[in-house]
Computed example of a mutant assay.
Amino acid sequence: MKHLIVYAHPNPKSFNHAILETLQGELLERGHDVRVRDLYKIGFNPVLSSYDFEMLAQGTVPPDIHEEQEHISWADVIITIYPVWWTGLPAMLKGYFDRVLTSGFAYAYGENGPEQLLKGKRGVFFTTQGNPREVYTASHMFDAMKKTTDEGIYAFTGIETIDHIFFTSVPSIDDEKRREYLEEVKSFVHTVF
């Protein structure tokens, strides 16, 4: 199986990076093909510009967008790893989705409304938060975040969300709890793939 990991955290010493390393290692160990797009490392430009609109309107996909679309086209599974900042996606990742999941590539508008052009692909979200699980549960924030990403991005384009895994209280937990979280990542890979 071919996995594209879209990773969006600027700190290579972050817990998000530990998730990335664990996930990539487990998938490779099980014989899967894996590509990683570390958005900060590759210097991805997240700003959707008037140039992008002009090029796309002319039927030309800007080269950096085209490259990312090629990775998405290649993948069977798209796995996204990111920290939740202000109850949403980091600007880098939001910009990635804004620029890469374009009309004509990820979706189109037909006579009967939107058409999903990425059907047949599956997706997973791994996210980290600073607050305790109880805070997000009480405020229904998990549901809101899933609505935005699982439905608003993946389902809209036809990607079937396998799971959205939330790791909470990351800045305040101890290393033992972080190891437990990483074991959850390994268990997920073994169970699902």
Rank of each mutant, 00 (worst) to 15 (best):
D33W: 09
D33E: 13
D33S: 14
V34Q: 05
V34P: 01
V34A: 03
R35W: 11
R35C: 07
R35K: 13
V36E: 01
R37C: 12
R37T: 10
D38F: 06
L39Y: 10
L39K: 10
L39N: 07
L39S: 07
Y40K: 11
Y40D: 03
K41P: 00
K41W: 04
G43A: 04
G43K: 07
G43D: 04
F44A: 03
N45Y: 02
N45E: 04
N45I: 01
N45C: 00
N45G: 01
P46D: 01
V47D: 04
V47E: 09
V47H: 10
L48G: 04
L48R: 11
S49V: 02
S50H: 12
S50G: 02
S50V: 14
Y51G: 02
Y51V: 08
Y51C: 02
Y51Q: 09
Y51R: 07
D52P: 08
D52C: 11
F53K: 11
E54G: 10
M55H: 11
A57C: 09
G59W: 09
V61Q: 01
P62R: 12
P62N: 10
P63G: 08
P63R: 14
P63H: 13
P63N: 11
D64I: 12
H66P: 00
H66A: 14
H66Q: 15
H66Y: 15
E67Y: 13
E67Q: 13
Q69K: 03
Q69T: 05
H71L: 15
H71N: 12
H71I: 06
H71G: 03
I72Y: 00
S73C: 07
S73Q: 14
W74C: 06
W74I: 05
W74H: 04
W74F: 09
W74G: 02
W74M: 06
A75H: 06
A75G: 03
A75N: 04
V77G: 01
I78A: 05
I81D: 03
I81A: 03
Y82E: 06
V84H: 06
V84M: 14
V84P: 01
W85Y: 11
W85Q: 04
W85E: 02
W86Q: 01
W86P: 00
T87S: 08
T87W: 15
G88M: 08
G88E: 05
G88H: 09
G88W: 14
L89M: 12
L89K: 04
L89I: 03
L89A: 02
P90A: 01
P90N: 02
A91C: 06
A91S: 15
A91W: 14
M92C: 07
M92A: 12
M92T: 11
L93W: 06
L93V: 06
K94E: 09
G95N: 12
G95Y: 15
G95P: 07
Y96A: 00
F97Q: 06
F97R: 06
F97S: 07
D98F: 13
D98E: 11
V100L: 02
V100H: 02
L101K: 11
T102Y: 06
S103E: 12
S103N: 09
S103Y: 13
G104L: 05
F105H: 01
F105I: 01
F105S: 00
Y107H: 08
Y107S: 01
A108D: 10
Y109A: 06
Y109L: 10
G110H: 09
G110I: 13
G110T: 08
E111N: 07
E111W: 15
E111Y: 14
G113S: 08
G113E: 04
P114R: 15
E115P: 03
E115F: 14
E115S: 07
Q116W: 05
Q116P: 00
Q116T: 11
L117F: 13
L117V: 10
